[in-house]
Design a protein around this nucleic acid. Structure first.
Lengths: 150, 150
DNA sequence: AATGTTAATGATAATCATTTTCAATAATAA
DNA sequence: TTATTATTGAAAATGATTATCATTAACATT
């Protein structure tokens, strides 16, 4: 369990009480580069904090999503996954998903291309569909290094 | 129920027996512009073909996904959705998803931008991650016309 | 520091999408 | 027409997520 209330200040106005489970879940997600499911988060925290309940994990994840601290991802494997959301607006990244082993790789190398797509998209979508873009998501499916070999 | 076996020929080699449920499900998806869930497909077919079972719908959808006839989509609302896949490789489109009412709009207006992103992506991802891109997916989240007003 | 209010928790049960099981059916080859 | 076996559908099983509710604990007030 990390320093007592590292993340508390980011919740002013969102939540009444800052608690150990909330701190622990947000802290875990801020440290890992994995895209963890609720069960995985629960299992990880359980080892250092056996009192925690799976229900609380689900509830807290929901809270964190709603308050914009984390992203909920669904890759279609039957469970949602979560990732920490950096403060910076520009730090959008893509996910590479191996269709063979399910590995997920983060990729932030297409910054310029993405921005251009986005700029154009906002323009087109507003004019044609009167749709206001608030967020976007780009995924690439294919084969990772390991799976190509085998 | 449509003309007897309209889609049969596209299955040569994929499947042994071509049946009424398979025909009906594929035909329905080929006609609709909606992004239907298994339950919705089941309900629609049930009215004209009361013998059909939900299990068969799930199984057939799986078969159709595996053989490349349809796409499975997961927008994170707890159920998968399906769309017919046109033969043409280039006919990739994006989805606009209204975060308020859940409406899904198809959009094919970003053809050039998408191609350029993709071209660059394949290059970068191969070099940096040794990842082979087979497919991609782009989604825009925001507010649709109706939801902006209310 | 002690107290009271009530938000937050966690165990359990419920829900909902999807999968598995298995006996019955029907598509196709012989 | 018959035999083979892929396919079907009902029912049960699974697995992720949500709802219920009594208990606990955060924190504002004393």
């Amino acid at each position: 369990m990390p320093g007592p209330y590292k993340w508390r200040h980011r919740f002013q106005g969102y939540v009444c009480r800052w608690t150990l489970p909330r701190e622990a879940i947000l802290d875990l997600l801020s440290r890992t580069s994995k895209h963890m499911s609720a069960k995985e988060i629960y299992a990880t925290l359980y080892s250092m904090y056996p009192g925690i309940g799976l229900t609380t994990v689900y509830r807290t994840l929901d809270l964190l999503v709603r308050s914009g601290m984390i992203n909920r991802l669904s890759f279609g494997d039957g469970q949602n996954r979560y990732e920490f959301r950096s403060g910076k607006k520009e730090e959008h990244h893509q996910h590479l998903i191996c269709t063979k082993c399910g590995r997920i790789i983060d990729c932030s190398d297409l910054f310029t291309e993405q921005l251009e797509l986005l700029k154009k998209a906002e323009d087109v979508l507003t004019k044609k569909y009167n749709f206001t873009v608030l967020d976007h998501n780009i995924e690439f499916y294919g084969l990772c290094e390991k799976c190509k070999k085998s």
